[in-house]
């Protein structure tokens, strides 16, 4: 049965680790990395890709525009 699947790509080097995307994701897809990026932030990354519905909430609240969202019927 076809179902809607989403996925996100995060520009982790431009991410400032504010975690607003984590707070706004209804599917708990995103987590803060334990590692730091070049800027010294615990960047956000899609820890649980498979739970993404492509709702784009994360991208819409991201102050730095570092999240790109995709969605497809699979």
């Amino acid at each position: 049965m076809a179902k809607i699947k989403g996925n996100i790509v995060i520009d982790t080097e431009k991410c400032k680790g504010c975690e607003l995307c984590i707070a706004s994701c209804p599917s708990k897809v995103i987590d803060a990395a334990k590692e730091l990026n070049e800027k010294g932030y615990h960047y956000a990354y899609p820890a649980k890709h498979e739970q993404c519905t492509g709702c784009a909430n994360c991208a819409i609240v991201c102050p730095d525009g570092v999240i790109t969202v995709y969605k497809a019927k699979i």
């Binding site: 989403g6 492509g54 784009a56 991208a59 819409i60 999240i67 995709y70 969605k71 497809a72």
Partner: peptide, 9 residues
């Protein structure tokens, strides 16, 4: 899924 035609945002 990460393909131009599936782009949402």
């Amino acid at each position: 899924i990460v393909k131009p035609e599936n782009l949402v945002y």
